[in-house]
Amino acid sequence: MSRIESKDLTRMAVLARLALGEDEISSMTRDLEQILGYVATLEGLDTEGVPPTAQGFELATPLRADVPETPIDPELAVANAPARQGTAFLVPKVLEEEG
């Protein structure tokens, strides 16, 4: 585990789609450094051969029968939309790069 630097934080901000000002970057870097410093206590703990726990406990896989339900009323689906065109959501032009 290494020290977090402001360039790491900037990269995380890009991944998390958060626009941070210079001040925020430096204060957040400081906070995260402190927290990660505390978290470093885990480093000393030997976890060789210990399986990871993802959930409280593992149940049998819950499954749903392949039976379609009535879809949500399209008007209701877009009722909370900040911008819409008919029953579609509207966003600034999407440039092809991912998908």
Binding site: Q85, L90, V91, K93
Partner: peptide, 10 residues
């Protein structure tokens, strides 16, 4: 459908 500056999401 979406206009020149926008895209629609379905």
């Amino acid at each position: 459908i979406a206009g020149r500056d926008d895209s629609c999401i379905d």
